[in-house]
């Protein structure tokens, strides 16, 4: 990866506030709507219901932020920017790595903001260790979506990339149980949920708060999704770069 390139992309992203606002405000509003209607004593899947919703919404924000780099890639491919880069010493792999790192950086603000809202408004009390653990696992949960962003970025056209990303994000969040707890879904929906990466990221993140400790199985599935989506993304990237 190239640090100048990363800084360049960060500056552009900060200026284009739409992505940041969408990925932070949406989950924050949803957390306020769903979380504030719950009582402190409510529980869901063995943890405080408010904490459950907090983690789900934070994950939703971070996965939509992580996927947003797909839009940037699609635009840059279309505008001939990749041709320009091929005429510099920058290695094509460095471009991809920079975009993935950008995705992971963008995934952080939604986590921070929703967790802070949970702490301040939702009165979610966790030990420092638990906060650190849930934050780290949630952040790792953004990895498969950075890969998915890559796939979309190399498949979609610039005019279709926004709707594709938006729709995918919503479908994954809804069917993966980030908006409504999987526990409250009918059994068919539960089975469907298990086929989405978001279900496993939610499961592993929430497990950081439970008594029984981290759900290593869920975490492995998350990493599996990362490998699969990352590999597809890299294949698409190679095909795109080789096209002469």
């Amino acid at each position: 990866m190239n640090l100048d390139y990363l800084l360049f992309d960060i500056k552009r992203t900060l200026r284009n506030r739409r992505v940041l606002i969408f990925s932070i405000l949406m989950p924050l509003i949803l957390f306020v709507i769903f979380g504030m209607s719950l009582k402190q004593t409510d529980t869901e899947a063995g943890i405080s219901a408010i904490a459950y919703v907090m983690v789900s919404m934070a994950m939703f924000g971070s996965l939509s932020a992580a996927m947003s780099s797909g839009g940037v890639i699609a635009m840059e491919r279309d505008g001939g920017w990749n041709r320009t880069l091929r005429l510099t010493p920058l290695k094509p792999q460095a471009y991809v790595v920079t975009k993935v790192i950008l995705s992971l950086l963008l995934a952080i603000p939604p986590l921070v903001v929703v967790f802070a809202a949970g702490m301040i408004f939702g009165h979610v009390h966790l030990s420092a260790g638990q906060w650190a653990s849930v934050a780290l696992v949630s952040w790792l949960g953004a990895l498969p979506f950075a890969g998915l962003g890559l796939v979309i970025g190399y498949v979609a056209k610039p005019d279709s990339v926004q709707p594709i990303t938006g729709l995918t994000t919503m479908l994954i969040a809804a069917f993966g149980g980030l908006w409504l707890p999987v526990e409250s879904m009918p059994s068919l929906m539960k089975h469907i949920a298990e086929f989405t990466p978001a279900y496993w990221t939610g499961l592993s993140s929430r497990s950081a708060l439970s008594q029984s400790g981290l759900d290593m199985h869920a975490l492995l599935v998350v990493l599996g999704w990362t490998v699969v989506l990352g590999a597809i993304g890299l294949r698409r990237f190679r095909a795109d770069t080789a096209r002469a």
């Binding site: 640090l3 100048d4 360049f8 840059e76 320009t84 010493p89 920058l90």
Partner: peptide, 26 residues
Amino acid sequence: VMLQSGGIIEDAKVGELLTLVAGLHR
């Protein structure tokens, strides 16, 4: 190289773009 059209980033500032390109070269 200076190509005919495209190949730039529309939402970037001129200075940023040049700083980036400078950062890619030795």
